[in-house]
């Protein structure tokens, strides 16, 4: 049941860059046909993303955070059109995503930055060709001279030197490669970037460089980000709004500052409690019990109930709907009933 999209306080009258409404994505994880028929089994589906809705306003960052298997990367792939939703709709710039993807003028306005800068750059291409590919594909500059000028400008923009274009990816460190990925992503002059764990393969000091660069670029170019990460501290640094995912559902969605200051959902609270932190030298903590259940066989009712300290019979039977508290949407019976205080 899609709820009304949440409008951020600082929203302009602009339509959102991305609007995701009631999107569900199933993956078929059945055994091969013959084995399934012989064993008289039914088809088996993994519900990777379960009825999620959100919007991203122009020039802002929405982050999705969660543990492995919560469906956050699937959302990234749905948003960029690499996967199609099983149900629900995605609109980009007011148009259905499939229509938008079919038009080069709209398609070039979204791009993706991947996690692994070692796997996402072609090792046989020089950096200048890697960065020039989108420029050529969308005919954004004509003539070798103009393309070269554009590539050099992009490399400088991400903190590399123009001469680096002559090198191959293996000559760069992980952080520099991620800069090349960003230069390539910016080459099609996009407005919307989907960043799937862009710094989790990097060391902390390099991570800081890349995060600073991404925020500078956002300020300068007015970029909109969908930022996917498992690292809550990184997410806090980057986000305007935050969605916390658990087993394919967004359990809490709202302005990042509010969610971090006053987390409402028990899962968000446990997640924030669990993170090792520099400011807690030598302090004991209460670890979250249990582990994330398998998304193939999710628990009935609220998917978080087996680990939730507030769970009662209703939580075990009935899937909670999103309820709005101020600017925050929370899917939790305990919060709704006021049992969470």
């Amino acid at each position: 049941m899609p709820e009304a999209p949440l409008t951020p306080a600082d929203a302009t009258t602009d339509m959102p860059v991305l609007e995701v409404t009631g999107v569900t994505r199933l993956f078929d994880v059945s055994r091969p046909w013959l084995q399934r028929v012989l064993a008289a089994e039914r088809k088996l589906f993994l519900r990777a993303v379960d009825d999620i809705s959100f919007t991203i306003a122009r020039g802002t960052t929405l982050s999705l955070v969660g543990e492995s298997g919560c469906g956050k990367s699937t959302v990234a792939r749905l948003a960029v059109g690499l996967l199609r939703p099983t149900a629900g709709e995605i609109h980009f710039e007011g148009q259905p995503l499939s229509t938008a993807r079919a038009q080069p003028a709209l398609r070039r306005r979204m791009n993706m930055i991947f996690q692994d800068p070692f796997a996402s750059l072609n090792p046989r291409w020089r950096v200048r060709d890697i960065v020039a590919e989108p420029i050529r594909a969308f005919a954004l500059a004509r003539g070798a001279e103009a393309v070269r000028g554009r590539v050099e400008a992009l490399l400088t923009q991400v903190g590399l030197s123009a001469a680096d274009g002559e090198k191959y990816p293996h000559e760069f460190s992980g952080g520099q490669r991620q800069r090349i990925s960003i230069a390539r992503a910016l080459a099609s002059e996009p407005e919307f970037l989907i960043c799937d764990e862009p710094t989790s393969a990097l060391d902390v000091s390099v991570q800081a460089q890349i995060l600073n660069l991404m925020r500078d670029l956002q300020d300068r170019l007015g970029l909109t980000y969908l930022f996917i990460s498992h690292n809550l501290a990184v997410v806090r640094h980057m986000s305007d709004r935050l969605g916390v995912m658990y087993l394919g559902r967004i359990v809490e969605l709202g302005p990042a500052e509010t969610v971090f200051r006053t987390p409402a959902h028990p899962y968000t609270r446990l997640l924030l409690e669990a993170i090792p932190d520099l400011e807690r030298v030598g302090q004991p903590r209460t670890p979250v019990g249990g582990e994330v259940p398998s998304p193939i066989d999710p628990p009935p009712g609220c998917p978080f109930h087996p680990r939730c300290p507030l769970a009662n019979d209703r939580c075990r039977q009935e899937k909670p709907a999103h309820a709005r508290t101020g600017e925050v949407l929370v899917a939790c019976h305990a919060v709704e009933e006021g049992r969470s205080a």
Partner: peptide
């Protein structure tokens, strides 16, 4: 000192993370 400052904090948000230029 640089390493500590480059870690994003959970408790508060800063405008800019301290960064150590270059790489090891």
């Amino acid at each position: 000192a640089g390493l500590m400052a480059s870690i994003p904090a959970l408790e508060h948000r800063v405008a800019r993370l301290a960064q150590i230029e270059g790489a090891m």
